[in-house]
Each structure stands twice: as C-alpha cells, then as structure tokens.
Amino acid sequence: MSAPAASLSVDTTAPAIRVVGVTKVFGTVPVLRGISFDLERGKVLSIIGASGSGKSTLLRCLNYLERPTSGEIWIDGEQINPAQIARVRAEVGMVFQQFNLWPHMTVAQNVMEALLRVRKLPITEARARAEHYLAKVNMLEAGARYPAKLSGGQQQRVAIARALAMEPQIMLFDEATSSLDPELTSEVLDVMRGLATDGMTMVVVTHEMGFARDVSDRVMFLHQGVIEEDGAPALVFSHPASERCRQFLSKYLG
C-alpha cells in the first residue's frame, strides 16, 4: 500500500537520517552541542533524557522546524537545503505533544489538507487515502467530527493518521503521549507499536521508558545537549555506561 513517493530520490544505500555535528544555540544558551549519528532505514530510535536536555530540539532540527546553528542534516542521502525544505518535510511525518489538529476543519479535512495542497491528489483519491489511514488508527467513524469533540487520545490518533497519509519515509514523534491522561496513552502507544512492526523508520522522543525498552531498536540518552549514551535498549537500560544515565533511569524505573 505505502509505495514510496516519487518526489524524493531515495538512495536506498544511504542511512535514513544522518546528523553531522549539529549545534543549536538559543540566544546565548547552547541547547545542542555537537550531535552526530546515523539512523538506518526501518529502525526505531528512542531519544530519552531529562527536560531541557535538548531532545525535542534535536527532533525539531531533523525537519528544520528548528534551524540548527551549525552542522548538517541528511535525509535519505540528501542534505537538507532550507530553500527546498517543504519537499523533505513531505517525506518526514511529525506528531506533536499538543496534537495540533486544525480546529476549524473536520477530522477528514485535517487528514486530506496536505494530500490536496502538497501531494496535489484529486479529491476522491485524497478522501480514499484519508479513510484508509483513519481506519488504520481506528478513527474512521470520526471523519465528519471536529477535533474539539474528541478525547486527547483520539485527537493524537488522528494527528498520526494525518502524518501517515502523506506516506512518509520517516516518522518523528515529539512526546506524543506526554499530554494525555494515563488511561489514554496506551491507545496511542499501540498505534506507534504497530507502525514499528510494519518497519517504519521512527525517531521517538518519549518519557515512556517501557515503550523505549520494548519497541525501539536503539536508545539514545541526551544530557545538556550531548549524547551520553547510545545503543541497544537492553544495553542502555541494564548496563548504562554513564552515571547520569543511571541516575535518570533509576528515577523512572524505580
């Protein structure tokens, strides 16, 4: 179903994401201090760390919502060029902590908007694709409703469908469950788990240590804008090399 979109020339030998020496300074405050890593196609990377560690900023640099102060970002073997950023963004889906559904449009219209304006699909095709992805997140019956009438978990599932409908190569999740009530997080995490199983390349900024441990292929611990720990979840969670990571995990895992 999800045929890769033709608009980006995909170099299948290159890593899905390559980050080279990225720094970010807000005013005089350094938030990211030289981040470099590669992420292979089809892998799930979880980024963990205390608030203020720079993990959300790093995620937002990946699709240039935040422009790095220096360094390079490569997506599918192509270096991001700020002048043509929209083309890359169409291939990189993003899900936000606050859902950010557009309140003046129905659920279906939210999902169809970028299909019509960016993909330029005919309306019938856009509608069919929106329905397909809404069904995938179990929100098909809500198509005609407005976001304000939905629960947080439902809104977040619609937001995921909105990003998926673009059939992106990569999905970014920015604390997707952090503003949900505990009983609503599982419905969103289930959708994310399903995506990982389907082989989607994912970068997940999260406080859900269970998800990071069980679902991801790789876990990265950020501290004050530096990668302190990077490896397989089993390794990071059971034998963290850095003292800070150990302290951080002990707070979460008890």
Binding site: A86, F96, N100, V118
Partner: peptide, 11 residues
Amino acid sequence: GHVEAALALGI
C-alpha cells in the same frame, strides 16, 4: 503548533 504541524507536512 498549528502552523508547525502544517510546516511539518510540507504545506
């Protein structure tokens, strides 16, 4: 955030 969501979709 509503603008960022649109930017992130390439609109």
